[in-house]
Design a protein around this nucleic acid. Structure first.
Lengths: 186, 186
DNA sequence: TTAAAAATAGATAGGTCTATCTATTTTTAA
DNA sequence: TTAAAAATAGATAGACCTATCTATTTTTAA
């Protein structure tokens, strides 16, 4: 028999979907409680304010992002392949809806005033960057720029290409990054 | 004697500042008319809806962006210097407030549903990309990747670094791009 | 079994928003 | 000078928003 989804999870799941797809400010409490089919009192029991719900949403995204990458690259040992697979992961994330990166979106929407949000987003991006620096360090590479600089700029290319996918609604830029980096590290 | 600023311009100037710094959805009509010191009827005479005001804002940003680049790079003839100056321009745009790219922000905030907005933003980004492709074509360059691919990925690095400047509130990533591309095209 | 905890429905406060309308005054051009 | 155009103040419709509150029912554990 199926386990009933707990109220807190129902709230967070619905909020995640709505914050991501229609934006934080576009999403009202009333819509969340209606779609999650829970009482407004329950929502404010679990999350004292809409902002607390936002923080829970971002923490959930952070956790799932790296879990997802882990699963996506599992079994691959060569750093070169892992780097290329990193792009594939970002491509897979964008398809089929091209809604962009939830962390970039929230900063664009509410700015960096809220320190908790700012630190969560900056932390998430730095964690990605560090992971890539590690992979590039393991590479058997002898090119015109050092590994760390290459890693950092590879990260930036992928960021730019992800933004571009959202704007243009296609993955051409991400494919271009893959082509570029393949040439650089082969 | 000083020319009085026309009502339409006062509206657009105030809307530009507010849309950019506090977001489109965070900015109410009432705040715009208060800060522009005009009547609400005047606003709706010049702009039939808030969305029309948004479109005017984006068209103004587009125009000023390329005018600003023109001014910033005037007198420079070597494509290599122009490419490096392109990064300096983006650095200058971000300082001292790090509010990011207005085009990326609006897509993150309202998505790509509105076709006019989507096309304006996509057009703006493509125009930048084409300009860079032209500069890289003129380059005396012999590297591991072809000029077009390098130009496209340089554009993406700058995009990523601009987003990163917004998130981290510093220009380290943009400086890193400059260092990287200098090594690539020297 | 029973007491505490969790969830419910539903009203409401107090504020926001975009857009429209009327009636009046000021500015612009012919 | 005068008629049309532009700008004004200010009210208002009708919808939305977050958060709080009461009173009741359901669920959970000891």
């Amino acid at each position: 028999m199926k386990e009933k989804v707990k109220v807190r999870d129902r709230i967070l799941n619905v909020a995640t979907d709505l914050f991501y797809h229609q934006g934080f400010n576009q999403t009202g409490i009333n819509q969340i409680i209606a779609e999650a089919d829970i009482a407004i009192g329950s929502l404010y029991n679990h999350f004292p304010s809409k902002n607390d719900l936002l923080l829970a949403y971002l923490r959930k995204q952070e956790e799932e992002w790296f879990e997802g990458l882990e699963k996506f690259t599992q079994g691959i040992s060569h750093p070169r392949e892992k780097i290329l697979k990193f792009i594939d992961y970002r491509i897979a994330q964008q398809q089929p809806d091209f809604y962009g990166c939830p962390f970039i979106k929230i900063i664009a929407e509410i700015g960096t005033q809220d320190q908790q949000v700012q630190q969560l987003v900056e932390g998430h991006k730095n964690r990605q960057r560090m992971l890539l620096q590690g992979l590039f360090q393991q590479l058997d590479y002898d090119g015109p720029v050092d590994r760390k600089l290459l890693a950092d700029n590879f990260f930036l290319m992928v960021e730019g290409a992800t933004v571009n996918a959202t704007i243009s609604r296609n993955i051409k830029a991400l494919e271009g990054v893959k082509k570029f980096i393949r040439k650089m590290i082969s």
